[in-house]
Design a binder for these strands. Structure first.
Lengths: 213, 213
DNA sequence: CTCTGTGAACGACTTCACAGCA
DNA sequence: TGCTGTGAAGTCGTTCACAGAG
């Protein structure tokens, strides 16, 4: 068996598979075929099998996949078989909401601190997370061994904060600021532009005929 | 000139081009080459040109593209040359944050109403938007001719609310609930799974060596 | 018989490279 | 010369179809 490097899009689908498997487990379902998994996620059985075999052989011919072990494997592959410390940079409306959001912890992410520049926010606690001045980023990143940051600052401040985060040793940035960030080599950026997501819907509706996918 | 149907991914990049062009315009820059645009967005000049020519010929050889007219064209293509009425369904932490978020209006989306089932939330006003009971969705969708909904309800309630939205005549759903939605034909779903986005970062960092893209 | 794992065929998207206009 | 628009070539990802395990 030759494990070829997986295409970039595969990781995204692994997250979907994992989510669906967790739901199946909660329903008490113990085995699942690629066909069943594909049906509930609007993809194909071949796609599911090919995606999974990029990382190993997890199924049994004639049997399908066992849910619980496959969940373990996917978590290991995605790196969420342990807890990651995360910081939130920018405690505006969106940042505050994410500090209260419980979905991250369920997936193995723990927000350990938040940062802002506004005197009105520094020193407060939002959703049981303390808000520090951004000056404290290097110290706290080191102390908690933080590798991931969620950036919810205004676009104007985003690049400067990114530089600071890179220097502090952060390895991944979830970027909600509507701007493209330059990072040091080895630092990954995952952009999330909420307005652009609505634009995509607008496009698919406006150009009727093909609301593909 | 034969306008071939554009690949699916192109629309996503159009949003990026538009965002960058708006920034250039704000800086007073009037003309831009595919090369310049590509450089600031980490893509290639050929990609930019190919993407744009799927929708028309907007540039002048030897000259490049004029920023302002190209912005107009992109807005027209994306359908954001007019204002869309949007509703928010689910006024938890995330929903509340989005009701206060100003980025949508800048892009031509106006949140006209919000909905929840909790007696503690119905009747309140969040970020100058009134919160109604979900029973009121059909009436208000009709009244404001709403085509887009932002779904920020818990996963358990998401499918039921989706059915309601489809019956009410909504044509696009921005789905923050961590579940796959079934919709009526002609209704588009754009999923946004925030925990999955963090998972992607985790994956790219954990599997060192290739933090591609 | 059922269902996985997998090379081979197919199709979609990207990059190349150049003709032609400014 | 500089730069766009575009067929052709190349690359990457998906789907097919089947051998073989259970």
């Amino acid at each position: 068996m030759k494990t070829q490097p997986a295409p970039n899009v595969v990781a995204l689908r692994l997250s979907l598979y994992l989510r669906q498997l967790e739901q199946l487990l909660a329903e008490g379902i113990r085995k699942v075929s690629s066909q069943q998994l594909a049906a509930s996620l609007q993809t194909t059985a071949a796609q599911v099998r090919k995606d999974l075999t990029h990382f190993g052989q997890f199924g049994r011919p004639g049997m399908g996949y066992e849910v619980a072990p496959l969940i373990e494997e996917l978590r290991r592959i995605l790196g969420t078989d342990r807890t990651w410390s995360v910081i939130v940079v920018g405690v505006g409306d969106l940042g505050s909401a994410l500090l209260r959001y419980r979905g991250f912890r369920k997936k193995g992410f723990e927000v350990v601190a938040a940062f802002d520049v506004s005197a009105g926010r520094v020193g407060k606690t939002v959703g049981s997370v303390a808000v520090y001045h951004v000056d404290q980023i290097p110290a706290i990143v080191r102390k908690h061994n933080v590798r991931l940051a969620i950036l919810t600052a205004p676009a104007e401040a985003a690049q400067e904060l990114t530089d600071l985060l890179c220097r502090a040793g952060v390895k991944g940035i979830l970027n909600f600021a509507p701007t493209t960030l330059r990072t040091s080599p080895g630092v990954a950026v995952q952009p999330v532009d909420l307005a652009a997501q609505l634009e995509q819907l607008s496009f698919r509706i406006a150009s009727v005929g093909l609301p593909r996918r």
